[in-house]
């Protein structure tokens, strides 16, 4: 059964490997260039001498020019955010829907292997492909993003979404959603469409409605002279809201933020939520497969 599952997952695994290889050629080269630019622009030495983004603004501007020339002005980080979901959807959805459509489920389910065992084998092998591919993708994205972290930190959304353990959670949620939608919708094209739409809905709800509330954000506010140490992206803080009034208006400047040391707590919570979603969907898939006919 294990060999069969692997053989049936192989095309998806080859696709995932090709995706990783393609990403690697771009992200490793770009990450390398960015690291070199940190040095050549003098940004690294300026920052390590205790400079901030404001005091090193010339070097930072030069660094961003290099970044823009690499990305062609495209929001690459925003594209990279899509990868875990796409990976999960394209590995997870076909597992059941393709077998239903081609009638091969009737072949598979009349061998001397129970449906439950069959499903477990298929999900574990395909799930491993998703995990391995996603870990590789996360490593590549982290390498690429490293130099930018020095300026913007990794806690603000475009950094947070592509680093740490959160991408893996989203890949697994998309994978499980694909498997479940596949067995319920039973036709490929609508199954893929519904899975993609469902995945983005889950993502948007967590990212925009839940993430900011995982822990109560901190607030600093002042009138007149600013405190010496302010929360900043370069320190790894996530600046959620900044309210800067006109100078001399008498209103306080307010910064609402999540401090850098909460990064892994947030990542762990978000991984927990996405894995719980995945587990629920996988359980439903089992229930459906055991109950339903072919």
């Amino acid at each position: 059964m294990t060999w069969t599952s692997w053989r049936l997952t192989r095309p998806a695994a080859i696709g995932a490997a090709a995706l990783v290889a393609l990403l690697a050629t771009y992200l490793v080269a770009a990450g390398h260039t960015l690291r070199a630019a940190l040095d050549s622009t003098g940004l690294l030495s300026c920052l390590s001498a205790g400079g901030s983004r404001q005091t090193c603004s010339d070097q930072a501007a030069a660094f961003y020019r290099t970044l823009n020339s690499l990305t062609g002005g495209q929001p690459v980080a925003a594209y990279l955010v899509l990868l875990p979901g796409l990976l999960g959807v394209f590995v997870g959805t076909p597992i059941l829907v393709r077998e239903i459509e081609s009638g091969t489920l009737r072949l598979a389910w009349t061998q001397s292997v129970t449906r439950t065992r069959w499903l477990t084998s298929r999900l574990v092998i395909a799930g491993l492909v998703v995990v391995v591919a996603q870990l590789a993708i996360t490593l590549l994205m982290t390498y690429w993003r490293g130099p930018v972290n020095m300026l913007d930190g990794r806690f603000e959304p475009t950094g947070y979404n592509i680093q740490g353990i959160v991408p893996l959670g989203y890949a697994l949620a998309a994978f499980a959603l694909g498997a479940f939608v596949g067995v319920t919708v039973r036709r490929s094209a609508p199954a893929f469409a519904i899975t993609l739409a469902g995945y983005f809905l889950i993502r948007l709800v967590i990212e925009n409605m839940l993430r900011g509330r995982f822990m109560t954000p901190l607030t600093v506010s002042w009138v007149g002279h600013a405190p010496t140490v302010l929360p900043s992206g370069a320190h790894g803080d996530w600046l959620m809201e900044q309210d800067i009034p006109k100078p001399g208006s008498g209103y306080p400047t307010v910064i609402i933020y999540q401090p850098a040391d909460r990064f892994w707590t947030f990542q762990a919570l978000e991984l927990g939520i996405t894995v719980a979603i995945a587990a629920t969907l996988i359980t439903l898939t089992y229930v459906w497969v055991r109950r339903r006919s072919h």
């Binding site: 053989r7 049936l8 095309p11 081609s102 009638g103 091969t104 489920l105 009737r106 072949l107 009349t110």
Partner: peptide, 13 residues
């Protein structure tokens, strides 16, 4: 042993 009407096989194998 069961054989369905359309003799399903994994076509890519």
């Amino acid at each position: 042993g069961y054989l369905a009407q359309d003799h399903p096989l994994y076509r890519g194998l």
